Simulated scan of single mutants.
Amino acid sequence: MADLKYYDVIQKPIVTEKSMASMEEKKYTFAVHPDATKSQVKEAVEKLFDGTKVSKVNTMNCDGKTRRRGRTQGKTAKYKKAIVQLTEDSKDIEIFEGL
């Protein structure tokens, strides 16, 4: 297992219609490091964003899509996605405000 620091775990937020709709339930979606565990994701969110308290984390490995360009065929990069559920009394994450 990789020795990951908390600032290496979360790579970027994922902004889609579905992820924006789930923000009402205090669920936030992030692209995370492929070797990150649920406990590492929880620790990273609580340290990076002040006042947040994570209640649960769901992770999923997403395979790359097959793409064609003429005759040649290839795949896009695979990635890991985490959906973070915050507790009711925790603050919202500032990155997603105003979107």
Rank of each mutant, 00 (worst) to 15 (best):
V15M: 09
K75C: 06
Y7M: 13
D92G: 04
V9T: 07
L86V: 06
K12S: 14
T66V: 15
I10W: 06
D63C: 10
I93T: 07
P13R: 02
A77V: 13
T16H: 05
K38W: 01
M1W: 08
V15P: 02
H33V: 01
E43T: 12
K81E: 10
F96P: 05
L4P: 04
E88V: 08
E97R: 14
Q73D: 01
C62S: 13
K12N: 14
P13K: 05
M1L: 12
S55G: 05
E24Q: 09
Q40L: 00
E24I: 04
A31G: 06
Q40R: 08
F30D: 01
E46Q: 11
L86W: 00
S19N: 01
V84I: 04
K47L: 14
M60F: 09
D35Y: 03
L99E: 08
R67P: 00
Y28A: 03
Y79P: 00
A2Q: 10
M1I: 12
D89T: 09
G98L: 08
H33A: 04
C62H: 15
G70R: 03
Q11N: 13
I95D: 14
R67G: 07
I93V: 14
Q40I: 07
A31R: 13
E94P: 12
T29D: 00
E17Q: 02
K75S: 05
I10V: 15
K18N: 10
R68V: 08
Y28G: 01
R68G: 07
K78N: 13
R71V: 12
K56R: 09
C62Q: 15
A31V: 13
I83R: 05
E43R: 03
T66F: 06
V15A: 11
Q11S: 07
S39E: 14
E46D: 08
V45E: 01
G70C: 10
P34E: 15
K47H: 08
L99A: 04
T52W: 03
